Simulated scan of single mutants.
Amino acid sequence: MSEEYFYLADETVTAAEDYSQKCATRLDQIDKVLIFVIALVILMMIKESVSAVVLMKKNRELNKKAYIDLHTGLPNRSRVEELNAHYDHFDEPTAIIVFDLNDLKVVNDSLGHLAGDTLIMNFAHIIRTSIPEKYFVGRYGGDEFIALLNDVTQQDVEDIILQVQNEARCYNEFSKQIFIDFAFGYALSTHSRETNLKLLLNQADKNMYECKARMKAKKKSH
């Protein structure tokens, strides 16, 4: 009986050990599967996060391009129109200067559109480098550019225009074929009690066309 008892006990212990080993093996397999699943989920989350960051970056780039004139690198008319919505009043003296190239059509017709494009790019460069970086400079369309100046006096505005004229004069001294000639007009918020950016821009544009008319009349008289 004792031998039979010990034999059964030994068999029971062996069976228990085998079962425990099988359970341990299964648990180990389950742990490996869980680790794999968790790692896969983490990788998917990282991938989604990277995709989201890339998408946000692309969206920012697209939004930026939507407001940039690709020809000159300056903000475009859409950006100017957006500014109109923000400046429904002025908390500080503000000015708008409108610049308009003269004889662009003559350059296009006589030297070709490539020369006209070069003229526009060079004029854009002169305006942007002549006007302090803190002020907005944009291409309003075609051969027309604008500068938005905050916290300025009339003398400040006239000094900036003079700087642009001087830079254009220096350019013309070295240019052999393509010369820069432009009209300008400006308007100050301090000249009107009730105004906004759109009205200011309209007034500056009107003053620019008056300047252009005077320049044409002067050329005819000579």
Score class of each variant (00 low, 15 high):
residue 60 R to E: 11
residue 127 I to K: 06
residue 128 R to D: 09
residue 104 L to N: 06
residue 75 P to Q: 02
residue 124 A to K: 03
residue 45 M to H: 07
residue 76 N to F: 10
residue 90 F to Q: 05
residue 164 V to I: 01
residue 61 E to K: 14
residue 194 E to F: 04
residue 44 M to V: 15
residue 31 D to T: 10
residue 97 I to W: 04
residue 34 L to F: 15
residue 34 L to V: 15
residue 87 Y to C: 08
residue 11 E to L: 01
residue 218 K to Y: 12
residue 70 L to S: 14
residue 59 N to Q: 10
residue 34 L to Y: 15
residue 146 I to A: 01
residue 42 I to A: 01
residue 80 V to H: 04
residue 103 D to Y: 10
residue 191 H to F: 09
residue 42 I to C: 01
residue 161 I to L: 10
residue 95 A to F: 01
residue 108 N to V: 08
residue 213 A to E: 15
residue 170 C to L: 13
residue 126 I to S: 01
residue 19 Y to W: 00
residue 1 M to R: 14
residue 6 F to K: 10
residue 197 L to E: 00
residue 161 I to A: 09
residue 90 F to R: 05
residue 169 R to Q: 15
residue 93 P to Y: 13
residue 125 H to G: 06
residue 49 S to Y: 05
residue 30 I to G: 03
residue 220 K to A: 13
residue 185 G to C: 05
residue 86 H to V: 03
residue 44 M to S: 15
residue 82 E to F: 10
residue 193 R to A: 14
residue 103 D to K: 10
residue 1 M to H: 15
residue 202 N to D: 03
residue 88 D to W: 02
residue 89 H to C: 15
residue 165 Q to A: 05
residue 1 M to K: 14
residue 63 N to I: 00
residue 50 V to K: 12
residue 126 I to C: 05
residue 73 G to T: 07
residue 178 I to C: 06
residue 3 E to C: 04
residue 72 T to V: 02
residue 191 H to S: 08
residue 15 A to F: 01
residue 174 F to S: 04
residue 125 H to R: 05
residue 66 A to H: 12
residue 103 D to H: 10
residue 23 C to Q: 13
residue 172 N to V: 00
residue 58 K to Y: 09
residue 78 S to E: 08
residue 140 Y to C: 06
residue 22 K to P: 02
residue 213 A to V: 03
residue 101 L to E: 02
residue 175 S to R: 14
residue 146 I to L: 07
residue 54 V to G: 00
residue 64 K to S: 04
residue 24 A to M: 07
residue 56 M to R: 15
residue 203 Q to N: 12
residue 81 E to T: 02
residue 117 D to C: 15
residue 44 M to R: 09
residue 55 L to S: 11
residue 183 A to E: 12
residue 20 S to P: 12
residue 162 L to F: 14
residue 77 R to E: 06
